[in-house]
Simulated assay, not measured.
Amino acid sequence: MSTMTLIRTESARPTEPAPRFTDLLAAEWIKLRSLRSTYWVLALAALAAIVININAVHSDLTYIDHPPPRMPGMPPYRYDPLYHGLSDIACYLMAIAAGSLGAITVFGEYTTGMIRTTFAAVPDRRGVIAAKVLLIGGITALAGIVVSTLSFFTTNAILASRHVGLSITEGVSLRAVLAYAAIVPVCALIGMALGAVLRHATASIVSLVLLFFIMPLMFGGDRYRWLHEIGSHLPLATVGRLTYNPNSSTTTSKWAPSVLDAWITMGVWAVVAVVVTAAVVRRRDV
């Protein structure tokens, strides 16, 4: 009788409810917030990127007031607020900071063994990865928007005194601001994929540097089209195409991709990074 009573009692116990997606987001936020160095690095990188863009434009004021003499046979020089106000250096800084943040959210859990606790509490690995992607993508997207908008409006406010500034509705300004912001979460997702595949801090960061900075040097120039095609479809190359101002004195390559192609390339990098992260985490042992 006592055995039957025990069986009935055990069967009558309510099952533990499955965690909701909001619970997974909250858990990932707690993990990220507990690592103060991670979001401080992103915040400092965003601040430094804004300062770099503002300083670049402020340093150009003297150059704008005293432009170089016109070369024979060359068109008159036109200052490009997008090229200087949304500089490559600041973009590279945000790319490596966001990529590192994305990588550490994945390999950090494997390094500390926290991933075992996470999957023991939530066996649905797809839900965990979806929460990570949404959280990291959202935070880095916010950082990208802050850097892009503040850099654009501040630098063009400075240039307004020289009558060379742009408004957000003028030319390709809006597209440039959106692309400058969008590349930040894309780099974070790429970092997550590398962190999931390599599961090592040094290897992940070195791979980010190779992909973002070294490979563009290997696949540059206009001599061979196939090399140029590869280089123009690397992640950071899409930003250069989307922020290009056709009203400036600079020119693009004769094989430069279209604007639509650059947007598609950026989206493909993001989607492939998410798919790789989910596939690797689901199939590999912890």
Rank of each mutant, 00 (worst) to 15 (best):
T3S: 13
L6K: 11
R8K: 12
T15H: 14
E16C: 09
P17C: 07
I30W: 10
L32F: 12
S34E: 09
W40H: 07
W40M: 15
V41N: 13
A46H: 05
A46V: 08
A46K: 06
A46Y: 03
H66I: 03
H66N: 12
M74L: 08
M74A: 13
P76D: 15
D88A: 10
A97H: 08
A97F: 08
A97T: 02
T105L: 15
I129F: 02
I129E: 07
L142C: 11
A143N: 02
A143M: 14
I145L: 15
V147D: 03
T149C: 12
N156F: 00
G165N: 09
S167T: 14
I168C: 03
G171H: 03
V172W: 05
L174D: 02
A176F: 09
V186I: 04
A188C: 04
M192R: 05
R199F: 09
S207V: 00
L211Q: 05
F212D: 03
F213W: 08
Y224I: 11
W226C: 05
G231N: 06
L236A: 00
T243Q: 11
Y244N: 04
Y244R: 03
L260D: 12
T265N: 12
M266A: 12
V272T: 01
V274D: 01
V274Y: 03
A279K: 09
R282G: 01
